[in-house]
Design a protein around this nucleic acid. Sequence first.
DNA 1: CAGAATCCGCTACGATACTG
DNA 2: CAGTATCGTAGCGGATTCTG
Lengths: 114, 114
Amino acid sequence: MYERKIPLTLGCGFELVRQVVNGKWKFMLLYCLHEGITRPSAMERALPGISRRVINIQLNQLIGHGLVSKQDYEEKPPRVEYFLTDLGKSLIPFIIDLGTWGEEHKGTLQLNIV
Amino acid sequence: MYERKIPLTLGCGFELVRQVVNGKWKFMLLYCLHEGITRPSAMERALPGISRRVINIQLNQLIGHGLVSKQDYEEKPPRVEYFLTDLGKSLIPFIIDLGTWGEEHKGTLQLNIV
DNA sequence: CAGAATCCGCTACGATACTG
DNA sequence: CAGTATCGTAGCGGATTCTG
């Protein structure tokens, strides 16, 4: 054998992950759901700076990717709730650990990012 | 107490991580380095579809974030090598585990993404 | 309160060509 | 082989407005 052109058996996995978590607020939205913040209005309060449009778009993408499910109670005034699916839950440990990693290296990183 | 407006102590960490790994090929570049693929030409071969321009841009960002270091041997023909810093190495387990996660749920995810 | 529709600026990325 | 410069494009996300 010569050389492996694509030595990255994980490459496909990387790309899938990248697509799934691609989006400015996806991590935080998933973490909100994990924290029990299930309603859009609550997310808007919990995440200063996010807009309703982006909440909807990114939640819908997460639903499309099978990480989130939606419950519409069809009441008036409207009430809906979003929940993590099992697949979504399986991603939470990564998110928390990555967030912790970011916190721990905040000093080093911020210097460079700012 | 009323309600915590920002219940996400990890929010800042999320944001830092998002900025650091933001980029289509960052995961794969970091994984390349971890695999010992240190030279740009080798990365180009290992990652079909990537361009030299993007390799340089994203590696420089990683350097700026302190995850990667560069060694220029100042020879002719030119030869340079990139390496993971300790900070960069500390991110590798996440990347591998996320790639594995993506691989494991490929079936579920691909249906939705395609 | 949930959410869809519209407009728009910014950036990332790809393609290409060029310098040492 | 390494790296830069330029151009064109698609998409993300912010602001705003409107509906049920």
